[in-house]
Design a protein around this nucleic acid. Structure first.
Length: 460
RNA sequence: GUGGUUGUAGCUCAGUUGGUUAGAGCGCCUGAUUGUGGUUCAGGAGGUCGUGGGUUCGAGACCCAUCUUCCACCCCA
């Protein structure tokens, strides 16, 4: 082998054991999504570049993976003519890119809805479990290729949707064994109201970016950052006074309602928040906390914003919100949506740290037939088929390899039973069945094999 | 994108101020046990020290570049 093969930075291979754990997360999410009536869809890994650009903010745009496609100018013009141009624009000529790998599942979903609107009935509830790509620097919990599990409902303004999504969030994590998460809820309209009242209406995005770091760098840190970004000091102080209030949600909302008098948008936000909370079943409501510092960078959110964190994990493991006009960009007006996205890979890392995956996931097969030669192995093929008809997993070792090698394979793969059928057993029409846990072995008639395995496995 | 960090056997890691032939544990292979794994014992294979340059009589170690790992920032699932 000349050079060791490798994979791109920030991507990973998954061994069977890891893959099973990942499947567990996907399966858990999928079953909850379906329980709430969401339907699966899939979209292509790549989108036209123009579909994605401008949707994620300046920072996001930089992280979109562009795919070189179409004919670049060098090919069109020929090597000779490009030499001069090359000197002036060194990275312009070779790059012609009009496609890109998807950055998330929400924007492609908006595109999907617009494109397929005639086939869908609204409100349309879908889920989607697929990989996305970001040209980020890899770090713990951040990869360049990772899976998102998205649930969205589009074509409905009702706040019952927000409530339902919070229920889903709660149930998915409960089912994964991650009951001790923090679900934080905020509303962009409230933030907007605070900005207006504080006289920071023109600095909305600067303000949100800064206050989002409040739990990390503290009030003073945020103040410094906002002033460094050029916000008027007076407004900064005012805004921070509103935001850094701590109390139970009803009290916070009442106080906010007082301070945002006269600001229509802010009042609407408060009202939405109230209605959302009121719609939550008690078991879910007690897990949701209002966090006025929650901002979220994605600029398409217009109402509720949701984020889920865990104290043992540095970044959010799930997030989402309401977007009033994402489809508008693609030509379909007045269709509002809400959704959340579960970061499967971050959830995986966290669950691995906390040792939360069920032990039974290390799925081992039930039965291995030792291969003693052609004639014997053919009998094994028949018996294996019969075992599988009763849903026992069974394999026949493919080569008549040394016994020791076959037994070692059985051991490392974790088979529960090894079945030996050599010339002796062929004559007797009964198999030697070895229990790999105890080491015991006994003779079982071919006809009684299924029942034997059933009794043994059923007893545990 | 900015700053730092890591890379030695299949895996986890030792390797002194630069100095002969680069080590350990685990795993793997062979045998004790030619129809019995996991335990035990004996033996064995496996490394151009991430890659490419450079300094030096001499580089796994020092310098530069590049790739990769992890971390902080930015941002985010």
């Amino acid at each position: 082998m000349a050079n060791k093969p490798s994979i791109p930075k920030g991507t990973r291979d998954f061994l069977p054991e890891q893959s099973l754990k990942r499947q567990f997360i996907f399966d858990t999410a999928r079953s909850i999504f379906q329980l709430y009536g969401y339907q699966p869809i899939e979209t292509p890994a790549m989108e036209n570049l123009e579909t994605l650009t401008g949707k994620y903010g300046d920072e996001g745009d930089k992280l979109i993976y562009k795919i070189q496609s179409g004919k670049n100018l060098r090919e069109q013009l020929g090597e000779e003519k490009t030499v001069a141009l090359d000197a002036v624009y060194p990275d312009w000529l070779p790059q012609k890119s009009d496609r890109a790998l998807r950055y998330d599942l929400t924007v492609p979903f908006a595109r999907f809805v617009v494109q397929n609107q005639n086939e869908l009935s609204f409100p349309f509830k879908r889920f989607q479990i697929q990989p996305v790509w970001r040209g980020d620097r890899p770090q713990r919990g951040r990869y360049r290729e990772f899976y998102q599990c998205d649930v969205d409902v589009i074509g409905s303004n009702g706040l019952l949707n927000e409530a339902e999504l919070l229920c889903i969030v709660s149930e998915v994590f409960e089912n994964l064994g991650l009951g001790d998460i923090q679900i934080r809820l905020n509303n962009r309209k409230i933030l907007s109201g605070i900005a207006n009242v504080a006289g920071l209406g023109n600095y909305f995005s600067e303000m949100t970016v800064a206050i989002d770091k409040l739990d990390k760098i503290g009030v003073e840190g945020v103040k410094k950052e906002m002033i460094a970004r050029g916000l008027p000091a007076q407004g900064v102080k005012k805004a921070l006074d509103h935001i850094s209030r701590k109390a139970d949600s009803e009290t916070v909302l009442r106080m906010l309602s007082g301070s945002l008098i006269g600001d229509e948008e802010g009042q609407r936000g408060i009202d939405e928040m109230r209605k959302t909370l009121r719609a939550l079943p008690e078991v879910v409501r007690e897990k949701v906390e209002i966090d006025l510092t929650l901002a979220r960078g994605l600029n398409y959110y217009t109402g509720a914003i949701i984020e889920v964190g865990h104290e043992k994990f540095p970044s959010s493991i799930c997030g989402g919100g309401r977007y009033d006009d994402l489809t508008g960009i693609f030509g379909l007006k007045d269709v509002s949506g809400v959704g959340v996205s579960f970061g499967a890979d971050r959830i995986y890392d966290l669950m691995e740290d906390l040792d939360l995956f069920p032990k039974t996931l290390s799925a081992s097969s039930d039965v291995l037939f030792i291969n003693f030669g052609e004639k014997e192995s053919l009998a094994c093929m028949e018996l294996a088929m019969k075992l599988r008809s009763d849903k026992f997993s069974a394999e026949v070792y493919p080569d008549a390899a040394k016994m020791q090698k076959q037994m070692k394979y059985a051991n490392s793969r974790g088979f529960r039973f090894v079945i030996l059928i050599g010339s002796q057993e062929m004559d007797d029409k009964s198999a030697t069945v070895k229990d790999m846990n105890t080491g015991d072995q006994q003779s079982v008639r071919f006809d009684d094999l299924n029942k034997f395995v059933f009794d043994k496995l059923g007893a545990e």
